[in-house]
Simulated scan of single mutants.
Amino acid sequence: MALQSMTGFARLDGQTGRHQWAWELRSVNGKGLDVRLRLPQGFERLEAEARRILSVRFSRGNIQATLSLQSGESKVEAVVNQAALDAVMALKNQLAAVIDPAPIRFDTLLGIRGIIDFKDSADGQDDMAALDAGLLQAVERASAAMAAMREAEGAALAAVLLAQVGAIEKLTLMVETDPSRTADQIRARLEAQVATLMEGASGTLDRDRLHQEVAILATKADVREEIDRLKSHIAAARDLLQKGGPVGRKLDFLAQEFNRESNTICSKSNSAAVTAAGIELKVVIDQFREQVQNLE
């Protein structure tokens, strides 16, 4: 399943019957999925289904979906008020003895208020059902177009994130292989520190006890566990990026773990080279976490 960025846009125009419409979808970063719809008055009935369509397609992001609708000219139809016409004809028959018996002319009927009315013909039930179906099919297609854009950006983000994971791995190996962590270097450094302490110390200083304390401090300063955890997090991050799908939250958690281990390495370090690598680790991890915020 492809990675998706949370940033995307799509617009789809079309026409159904006498109605011209346009769907416009926008998506930006969000902690969860927040779908907001702006529909023309009278089309609120589409909201639930449109929201469902978008929720199936996307799992994270602030999405705004706007429907614009314009209706073309409608047909004009004449409506006869049958009751009023019957009343006029009944009155004519009633007055047949005193008025001209000739049939009533059509233009005369047009002049009588209430007999014939002209109005726009409204869309029938079938027309409105076809319009609703067309609009919902359109939002489905628009969401697919926006998903394609988000996937394209997700692929570009994946390349950046994999490169950053590679940089984190390289810096982790630099810390692991730094000469200051070899047994000979540790032994020489501890011996020099003990010798320095013994030179200025009184005769009451227990040399064996001093060696024990220095060994304990050396053990506490070891970053082997942090290196192992970083390697485990690196493997997990690569697995998630290759697996794809909505993995943004998991990668964000790993970024926090990366940062925690790099902080510990810097605090334990007794080597300038290890400290420098730890600081560079923090920089790359911060860049990694910033990019992860854009992933679904």
Score class of each variant (00 low, 15 high):
T204K: 15
N93G: 15
Q15N: 02
S55A: 15
L69S: 02
A273N: 13
D239Q: 15
Q125T: 14
A236T: 08
A237N: 07
T177I: 03
S180R: 04
G245E: 14
F43Y: 15
S202V: 04
D228R: 10
V247F: 06
G17M: 08
I116L: 08
G8D: 01
A50Q: 07
G278Y: 10
T275M: 09
G245N: 07
Q256H: 14
G114P: 04
D107A: 11
I285R: 04
L110V: 05
A96L: 09
D228I: 13
D208S: 10
G30K: 00
E151N: 07
F258G: 03
I279D: 02
L91G: 00
A133H: 07
A83Y: 06
A167I: 03
Q242H: 07
R181L: 11
T172R: 06
S232Q: 14
D126M: 11
G17C: 02
A163M: 11
N62M: 06
V28T: 05
F58Q: 00
R57M: 13
L217M: 12
R52P: 03
T172A: 12
Q82C: 01
E280T: 04
A236V: 08
L190T: 07
Q193K: 14
T7A: 00
F258T: 05
D222P: 10
E226S: 11
R187F: 09
L95P: 04
L3F: 05
I265A: 04
V76S: 10
G278L: 04
Q15T: 11
Q242K: 07
V76R: 15
S5M: 02
L131T: 05
K282N: 08
E290H: 10
Q41E: 15
M1G: 09
A122K: 12
P103M: 11
T219A: 15
I216G: 05
V98F: 13
I116H: 03
Q293W: 14
D252S: 13
R141A: 13
E226V: 09
S27C: 08
F9K: 00
A272P: 09
I186E: 04
K231M: 08
I186S: 02
G244F: 05
A97W: 06
D117Y: 01
G8E: 01
L241E: 07
A2E: 12
A129N: 12
E49V: 13
K170Q: 15
M1N: 11
